[in-house]
């Protein structure tokens, strides 16, 4: 790297030109891609179909975004250290099956929820140990657990879905505060806590330092391997939480693959302006990215586009966002 010899530019430019300067600055657009994209989609879909912004549809969208938001937050922590968790969706499936089986055998909802969280955390520990102690690339390690976790789910469930009917779960999936369903409220609470952890705690700083430069972080005594382990445990535990929301929504624990959730969680992180090599990111960005992807699928359905086009459109949006992110400074 060649260091520029000029001094760093002073913080604020002249206020008059600031807005114009920002509009021209591609890095600004890259950083806020998810928000800009979301606003754009809302405008387009609303003008195409006026039911898009009705409270009923907004409520449905927020609820269906909740699971993706929770998964995306876990993914954000992992990606911020320069890793990637390809197993989030399978971990969720495994946790969902664990949840279903515990509930069926004990009929204790709280115990089943605890088991779901622990099952997710356990996969997270495995991921974290393979990456930090085993020194295996994140991509390969989690590719392995992706397959292993979905395989375990199939074995445990014997390939069959388990119906879970519980009044409290029903309330979780259908009740809410105003237009905000409980599952969305939970996702928002998780996001707020994650934001505080990310930006306001030593751990958050160490996550970013590990992703930014693992050598530099280690040289100052940051326990980078412990940080790597921790982010995978966070991602796993949040996948367990997402599993609870998923079972509440579907009414059953299915050993299904849920691949769309994996792709969308990575997509939301990219849309949210998190650097894929680590070291930079936010929580708000990926959460908006998850909302954008949900709005995209919902809007396309609403305007009558065949669902076959949805993966195509998600793919295009993600690649565009990744291209835009190259202009991030």
């Amino acid at each position: 790297m060649t260091a520029p010899t000029a001094e760093a530019p002073p913080g604020g430019a002249q206020p008059g030109n600031a807005v114009l300067e920002r509009a021209k600055d591609l890095s600004f657009w890259a950083e806020w891609a998810s928000l800009v994209g979301l606003v754009l989609l809302v405008v387009i879909f609303q003008s195409a179909n006026s039911t898009f912004l009705t409270s009923g549809n907004v409520e449905a969208m927020l609820v269906s975004a909740a699971i993706l938001i929770v998964l995306t937050i876990g993914q954000t922590f992992v990606v911020s250290t320069g890793g990637i968790d390809l197993s989030v969706a399978s971990t969720m499936t495994f946790a969902a099956v664990s949840f279903g089986l515990t509930y069926v055998h004990t009929h204790q909802l709280w115990l089943a929820m605890l088991v779901a969280l622990l099952a997710g955390a356990a996969i997270g520990v495995v991921n974290g140990l393979i990456v930090s102690k085993g020194k295996i690339t994140d991509f390969i390690a989690t590719l392995g657990t992706l397959s292993a976790a979905s395989g375990l789910a199939l074995i445990l469930a014997n390939g069959k879905p388990t119906t879970v009917i519980d009044p409290l779960l029903l309330k979780l999936s259908s009740g809410g505060i105003g237009i905000f369903g409980y599952s969305f409220v939970i996702a928002v609470v998780v996001a707020v806590i994650a934001h505080v952890v990310y930006f306001r705690t030593r751990f958050g700083t160490h996550v970013l330092a590990t992703g930014g430069s693992i050598e530099a972080a280690a040289a100052t005594g940051v326990r980078t391997m412990r940080v790597k382990l921790a982010v995978y445990v966070i991602a796993g535990t949040l996948a367990g939480l997402a599993a609870i929301l998923l079972v509440a929504r579907v009414g059953a624990a299915e050993p299904a693959a849920n691949t769309a959730f994996l792709l969308n969680s990575v997509a939301a992180v990219v849309l949210g302006g998190v650097s894929l090599v680590g070291g930079r990111g936010s929580i708000v960005g990926p959460v908006l990215g998850a909302l954008l992807l949900t709005a995209l699928t919902n809007g396309l359905t609403l305007v009558g586009v065949s669902e076959f086009y949805q993966p195509l459109s998600v793919g295009i949006v993600v690649v565009l966002a990744a291209l835009l992110s190259r202009f991030q400074k």
Binding site: S213, A219, T220, G279
Partner: peptide, 20 residues
């Protein structure tokens, strides 16, 4: 020799890294 700074963090974050 390689400075051991994290480029994506700010000056104050680097000064206090692991001594926050």
């Amino acid at each position: 020799q390689n400075l051991a700074l994290v480029e994506d963090l700010t000056v104050w974050q680097n000064l206090f890294l692991n001594r926050e």
